[in-house]
Design a protein around this nucleic acid. Structure first.
Length: 759
DNA sequence: CTCGGATGGGTTTTT
DNA sequence: CCCATCCGAG
């Protein structure tokens, strides 16, 4: 058992637990992944067949990593390592008959789901302004996560709003059914309900998966909890790993009580705490511990470390977001010159909008950097469109897929034509594709439209004859038939990226083909075509397979995106009331504890150097606001913490600023940290106003930033020269001359002009 | 169909 | 302020 040799006593105890429920409360940086992988290896070494083991993670990346790390220890073939969603999709494909689920369903992504909800709203004659598709989709998603069907919800929906949601929910399900599609939540819901109501299905899964392991258990929602519980209910072999202190997804339905109540749910449960941290300095851990101790909803857990002392945690006050960003950039410079590498550095923030100032400052300082997770690969327009073609091939009833590509690339099938086709399809109860086929029967279509639709059908028919065994070739052929590269080139903006994305999809297809060759034909997957599997992969995988990092870069990301990562040097910006904790969490009486956990997650990512920053003024929604330092800055305590002010205008430099904004004080006063320096508290409103006036004067707020001969950049016209500036304030107008285009006038506040260097 | 301008809304985000 | 989306004009 050499793979147990390097484990501590507690880790080994967890890794060698075989029968019965086990809860591993794994503190941040306590070697959880190690325990999980060793435990799986141990189970297999005890003669348990790998196909009886089910390991569930939350992201595909985590699943891939776990699989890899297990494979490095023991040979595996039939082991299931998957996300909840991928697992459910698989079960529905393979054992779906037991539930009466057709196994050739397609999976709608988030954006497709929203689109379908929007259609449902419109079909109910409701206005999409009052009934925002996004929000309604969110509500439906939550209902599904709680296993409430449209029919059940309709029964209980009382008020006007809920009744309409019920109507939309019902209509949306109709759409999904007729498109033979499921959204992400359906995958979980169908399996959870199947396990609950269908004995045969439950029996199949319980027999098949004798050992269940669920990682990040603190992030499970009700549906996922039900799935785990029902599968484990016969044999009780369930191992949950996680950390309540790192539960940060409550807002999307995760229920922290799943992990808090695990011991109650599974009688005879063994609990193992991993409290030794291998990642951070005592200073960083001390700050984190002091902070999280304020939470009531948790399991007492004392993180400790044997790591040597490091530098103090640095808390820095600055005046503005720009100062904050500049300080981060300068400090990165200092740190990296001394010891590090840019890849050692990460900057975290609560909301994406804070990344802008950071990006500007890093760019200005010439520090290579990257924002982690912009729009994901598979949500890119061009990729979605190509995938839609494939989807339509696999499932001709997929109307949403058809709608997505009916005029992509443009082929003269406009909205009017589409509306008429939709009308026809709805009337006859046929698919959109069928409606297109029978375009001759559709009323009120002119000859040109008919021809366009006819050509489109011809194109799809040609496509249908393509060989569907090799995905790479299929994608290439689809690109060729649709002249897709040409279309990408014609689209303005990042055209090279678009072609590159198409090529990337070809690569994904190629590696999929390669995997298919390697993987022995799985008896279970009979009847599931390679195309279906490929589409499943593409729908469920949102991350681009990690692009290999070329040169070292500073990583910028939200606190949510930071979970599970670690960096030697970490900066967290915007530690201010209303930002972290976020205003929404306070105002709506939402969970301040989750915000605290978020901060905790950020802090515990740092290995050796942690800097927390807060600005006294921050521009939000076009307005400069006075910002209170975050309560969390106080809660991290003073041991191993060094506080510093770089604010230019503050004489007393209180680390915890003075309350001045009377509006914000109301009702929340008690939560605010007490001012440390009474003298500061005594400052008058007059003094504040003066200071603000000075500050404002110091900020670059010219009456007009545009001057004749100024170089500017317009998103459409490109770079031009200002030749005229008239008016002021809201009616400030700017005349710009663009080479080869001519002169244009813009209302400054509307036109998105970017100021370039002054001539 | 395509563009520019008006309008409204604004955590966090994986699957 | 910044963005996505909608809407009317050409």
């Amino acid at each position: 058992m050499d793979y147990l040799a390097d484990l501590t006593a507690a880790q080994r105890e967890a890794a060698t637990h075989v029968e019965g429920p086990l809860l591993v409360l794994a503190g941040a940086g306590s070697g959880k992944t190690r325990v999980i992988t060793r435990r799986v290896a141990y189970l297999l070494s005890q003669g348990i067949p790998d196909r009886q083991v089910l390991a569930i993670t939350f992201t595909n990346k985590a699943a891939a990593e776990m699989r890899e790390r297990i494979a490095a220890l023991v040979p595996i073939r039939g082991l299931t390592v998957a996300t909840f969603h991928a697992f459910c999709a698989r079960m529905l494909r393979v054992y779906g008959d037991a539930l009466g689920v057709a196994n050739d369903f397609t999976i709608y992504t988030q954006s497709e789901s929203v689109r379908a909800v929007k259609q449902a709203i419109e079909r109910q004659g409701l206005d999409t302004t009052n009934w925002s598709p996004d929000k309604i989709q969110g509500r439906i998603s939550h209902l599904k996560n709680r296993l409430e069907t449209a029919a059940e919800f309709s029964k209980y929906a009382g008020d006007y709003s809920s009744k309409n949601v019920a109507k939309i929910y019902t209509a949306y399900q109709d759409t999904l059914r007729s498109a033979n599609a499921m959204d992400f939540d359906d995958l979980l819901m169908k399996v959870a309900m199947g396990l609950r109501d269908n004995e045969a299905f439950r029996g199949l899964l319980q027999d098949r998966f004798r050992y269940v392991l669920i990682d990040e258990y603190q992030d499970t929602n009700e549906a996922q909890y039900q799935i785990a519980r029902r599968i484990a209910e016969g044999h009780g072999n369930i191992c949950a790993t996680g950390d309540p202190d790192q539960s940060i997804y409550g807002w999307r339905g995760a229920n922290i009580h799943n992990i808090l109540d695990f011991e109650k749910d599974f009688a005879g449960c063994r609990v193992i705490r991993l409290e030794r941290n291998y990642r951070s300095t005592p200073q960083i851990l001390g700050a984190a511990g002091s902070l999280i101790a304020r939470n009531r909803k948790r399991k007492a857990k004392d993180l400790f470390t044997e790591n040597p002392n490091g530098r103090p945690v640095r808390v820095v006050e600055v005046d503005t977001a720009e100062d904050e960003a500049r300080e981060v950039a300068e400090d990165i410079r200092r740190e990296c010159r001394a010891a590090g590498n840019y890849a050692d550095v990460a900057v975290f923030y609560r909301v994406n909008s804070l990344s802008r100032a950071l990006e500007d400052a890093l760019r200005a300082a010439g520090i290579p950097h990257e924002i982690v997770r912009g729009s994901s690969f598979y949500e890119r327009q061009e990729v979605r469109a190509l995938v839609a073609y494939l989807r339509l091939l696999a499932n001709p009833a997929d109307d949403l897929a058809l709608l997505r590509i009916v005029n992509v690339p443009t082929r003269g099938i406009g909205d009017t034509t589409v509306k008429r086709l939709e009308g026809f399809a709805a009337e006859r109860g046929v698919s959109m594709l069928e409606a297109c086929r029978r375009v001759g029967e559709v009323a009120d279509l002119n000859a040109r439209a008919q021809k366009s639709v006819g050509d489109f059908v011809k194109l799809l028919d040609d496509m249908a004859t393509l060989d569907r065994v090799r995905m790479k070739q299929l994608v290439i052929d689809v690109v060729r038939l649709t002249d897709f590269d040409e279309y990408c080139r014609k689209l303005e903006g990042g055209e090279e990226d678009r072609v590159a994305n198409v090529n990337e999809l070809v690569n994904v297809a190629a590696s999929f083909d390669a995997e298919q060759d390697e993987e022995a034909t799985d008896a279970e997957s009979e009847g599931v075509t390679p195309l279906m599997r490929f589409l499943e992969r593409v729908s469920l995988v949102s991350d681009q397979d990690d692009v290999h990092e070329e040169r070292p870069k500073v990583h910028l990301m939200t606190l949510h995106a930071a979970k599970g990562l670690e960096f030697p040097i970490v900066y967290i910006v915007g530690l201010e009331q209303g930002v972290l904790p976020h205003a929404m969490a306070e105002e709506e009486g939402r969970d301040l504890e989750e915000e605290r956990r978020l901060c905790f997650v950020g802090i515990t990512r740092a290995k050796s150097r942690l800097t927390l920053l807060h600005a006294r003024y921050r521009m939000q929604r076009g307005q400069t606001n006075r910002q209170m330092p975050s309560v969390f800055l106080r809660e991290i305590g003073d041991v191993g913490v060094e506080r510093q002010s770089l604010a230019r205008f503050s004489s007393s430099a209180p680390v915890f600023g003075v309350r001045r904004d009377s509006r914000r004080e109301v009702g929340t006063t008690r939560r605010y940290p007490a001012p440390r320096q009474p003298a500061a508290a005594a400052r008058t409103a007059q003094a504040d106003r003066e200071e603000e006036a000075r500050l404002r004067a110091a900020l670059p707020q010219d009456e007009s930033p545009y001057k004749p001969n100024q170089l500017v950049k317009h998103p459409t016209y490109g770079i031009g020269t200002v030749f005229e500036v008239t008016g002021s304030g809201d009616s400030l107008k700017v005349g710009v001359r663009f080479p080869n285009i001519g002169e244009k006038k813009f209302v400054a506040q509307h036109a998105r002009l970017e100021i370039l260097a002054r001539r």
